[in-house]
Design a protein around this nucleic acid. Structure first.
Lengths: 228, 228
DNA sequence: CAGTGGTCTAGACCACCAG
DNA sequence: TGGTGGTCTAGACCACTGA
């Protein structure tokens, strides 16, 4: 019982058992280390992960407190559509229905922080699972940030995956939402107009340079799961 | 430059700069420690957080590798509706439109792992932001797991918050989805039937005991944001 | 079986900040 | 200003597993 994983569990048990009231100060690292007969470093490690998990709050000098209302967090793996599909045992195929090089419309230039009329690549892709559409993707790519994209075939790998391979370690922002299918979505996905589609909206950049903005519309019934 | 935060950044820089190809083995902890002139422990800490972030993959004996396709993760704070609303400066009020104690229907008993016909509390709540509906909540509560719930007023705090205060340190599972508004949703939220609603579906338990299952339907236009 | 990462320890110094 | 958490160090042992 002297490794930080089991100590974490043990301390979590004491918290959930109500040993320290929400908002109350817990014993200091030094005291817990004495109590468990281990090094302070080990306690420190356990408490740090508990703090990351949102169960406790720590401040120098003020000590460690049990959070009044623990922060509820969920970690999601932002899905790579190909993987999602192949994990079900189905065959993945991307089907590009639009591929157009054009000067960026204003709303796209703004999103990608580009000067007006920079060239972008606009793509529509339907992601097929055993030939059946799972998701429709509307993507805008900053050509300057990914020049090779113009020659990519997208027969087996999608634009997303192509970009991921080119600039694997970019950062981004994500948001989830719901939208009614318009004509285009409906025909791409083979569903009725107005159907509720789960959407993932994502902007990606590397350093100062914006790479792509994409919105993915999932077939009705899709859900994204996570642990809490 | 000898603390694990800056070391993490520095190593991340080298990864994103392409110093080690995706899939390639990175130098061992010992070598990096020599190179940076610090203790192996410090390098270890930095690499462990990089592994948590999904940028690298580590195996004993096999060493540390740069991930081919980094895992894209997003951490979301599962919103407490009251906080969401109050953060916008609006006044929060929950409005309970249904509150019924009954034997659990089969699909609820199954979800909450209850013996058939256990008593549950069924609640419908509309979450109001300055009097305007933001979300509709359909909740089932295992009465045995939260007996005091029967007397709770829910005038100012919602059932969710009440439960959170009673059993703050429970765990759970979450999933996100989209649904078309049915009659009930539509009238509760004051939107057209068929509107696309973003939904959060959550099951909560403490140890072996299931506490509640809830589904929240957000007004059209709502989106849940996160960093990547 | 040898080298990797995982972890613990004891001691140390420091930054912070409530009393 | 003293006690808290944050971190580093050097050394140690262990678990795992690929060559």
């Amino acid at each position: 019982m002297h490794n930080h994983h089991s100590l974490k569990k043990e301390i979590m048990r004491r918290i959930t058992a109500g040993e320290w009231a929400p908002g109350a100060v817990m014993p200091s690292e030094t005291k817990l280390a004495e109590e468990y007969g281990c090094a302070r470093t080990t306690i420190n490690r356990a408490l740090q992960t508990l703090a990351e998990d949102g169960l406790i709050e720590r401040k120098r000098r003020a000590g460690t407190r049990v959070r009044e209302l623990p922060v509820r967090q969920a970690k999601f793996n932002i899905p790579l559509v190909r993987r999602e599909i192949e994990q079900t045992g189905a065959v993945y195929r991307p089907h590009v229905t639009l591929r157009k090089r054009l000067p960026a419309p204003n709303h796209i230039a703004a999103r990608l922080h580009l000067p007006p009329d920079s060239e972008v690549l606009h793509l529509h892709t339907v992601h097929l699972s055993d030939g059946r559409p799972l998701a429709f993707e509307d993507r805008w790519i900053n050509i300057e940030a990914a020049p090779g994209i113009l020659d990519a075939p997208f027969k087996e790998i999608s634009a997303n995956e192509w970009l991921l391979r080119q600039t694997p370690y970019s950062s981004g922002s994500v948001s989830f939402s719901a939208e009614n299918a318009n004509e285009a979505h409906a025909s791409a996905l083979g569903v009725a107009k107005g159907a509720a589609l789960f959407t993932i909206d994502r902007t990606t950049w590397l350093g100062e340079r914006y790479i792509t903005w994409v919105k993915i519309f999932y077939r009705p019934g899709y859900s994204l799961k996570s642990g809490l």
